[in-house]
Simulated scan of single mutants.
Amino acid sequence: MAAATARILVNGRPDDALPVLDRGLAYGDGLFETIRFVDGMAPLWARHMERLRHSCARLHLPAPAAELLLAEARQVVQGLFQAVVRVTVTRGIGERGYALPIITRPHRIVAGFALPELSPDHYVQGVRLRICDIRLAEQPLLAGMKHLNRLEQVLARAEWSDPAVADGLLLDASGRIVSTTMANLFAVIDGTLVTPSLERCGVAGVARAEALAVQPAQVRDLVLDDLRLASELFLSSSVRGILPVQAVADTVYVPGPVTRAMQRHWRDLGFPMEQA
């Protein structure tokens, strides 16, 4: 399968289209999960399903059965040793207007892709980040969820084209650090692992949840001045794993023992990694 080619199931059947009146298209009314598979297995599957169930409940959206999603996910990655599955759940078709349908008939889309190429150098030496100009809006009712409206991330990613910059750091309107466009951020400050609070906005990633489960850490507000005091920075992503941060703008970092320990844990979960 070519990198740009996907196998797609819509409501369990091979298809690549939704009705034009689907609320996911009209209002971004839905959720998605991006799940890495290795040889038909997804080491973080349970965490993805937990977030999906919790987010569906918050949106008053019926959650699809995890067993059904797993069967469909394995179908679309068949023959691929490493793959990425995107599970999308929309509220389906409703009458015109914002009011929830009286009867909700969700649509589910399960799409399988070949794993994108991951640079070994990024895992060994780290990646460079820029500070994005766009600021994330605060909405606690949606904070943590991976809902379908990703326009802020789209506009943030449009701010640069330099291939030497791997990702962009996102702040909220008050200047608090939230995440990058594609990952959660961790910092080691005065010997303590810290990650930004996501109570106001941002996506609470499943790789972040895994890191918090195995490594004591503080979850609190962070600002750019805090990062200048950090001895290590790394990113967590369910697709890319644990990536050291080499630099944020002009501030340079060196991958340290906490980052390397988290990379070893990632490998122990069953994810092949290109770093040493």
Rank of each mutant, 00 (worst) to 15 (best):
T34S: 14
A187Q: 09
D226Y: 05
M182R: 06
R130Q: 03
T90L: 01
R58D: 06
V10S: 08
D268H: 14
F113P: 11
A99C: 13
H265I: 07
P19C: 09
V219L: 09
T192R: 11
V20C: 05
L80K: 06
P163D: 13
L233W: 02
L142E: 04
G112S: 12
G241C: 06
R260K: 02
I134M: 08
M41I: 07
R240C: 04
E33P: 08
M182N: 07
L142G: 00
L118M: 12
R220S: 14
H147I: 07
E50W: 06
D167K: 05
M41K: 12
L68S: 15
L68E: 14
M273W: 15
V10Q: 07
R176G: 06
S161P: 00
I102K: 14
A26R: 14
P116Q: 15
M41N: 14
L141M: 04
N184Y: 08
Q125L: 15
L227W: 00
F234N: 09
A230N: 04
V77M: 14
E210G: 06
V214L: 15
L243T: 07
V194W: 10
D268C: 09
G256R: 03
D22L: 00
G202S: 07
R105K: 12
D268F: 10
M262Q: 11
L243K: 00
A158S: 02
A204H: 01
A211P: 09
I177F: 13
T251G: 00
G175F: 07
R74V: 15
A207M: 13
A143F: 00
T181S: 13
L185D: 14
L31P: 00
L44P: 02
R13A: 07
A156G: 05
P163T: 07
R7S: 13
K146S: 02
F32S: 13
G202F: 09
V124Y: 11
R7W: 07
M273P: 15
R74I: 15
H147S: 09
D22I: 01
L68M: 13
V38Q: 01
R51K: 11
E95I: 08
V124P: 11
G191F: 09
A247I: 06
F81S: 06
V89M: 08
S119D: 14
G126D: 05
A42L: 04
L69H: 08
V77P: 11
D172Q: 06
F37I: 04
C201M: 03
A183P: 10
P244H: 04
V223R: 12
R264K: 08
A114Y: 14
D29V: 03
H122A: 10
N11I: 03
P14E: 13
R264S: 10
G270K: 11
R47P: 00
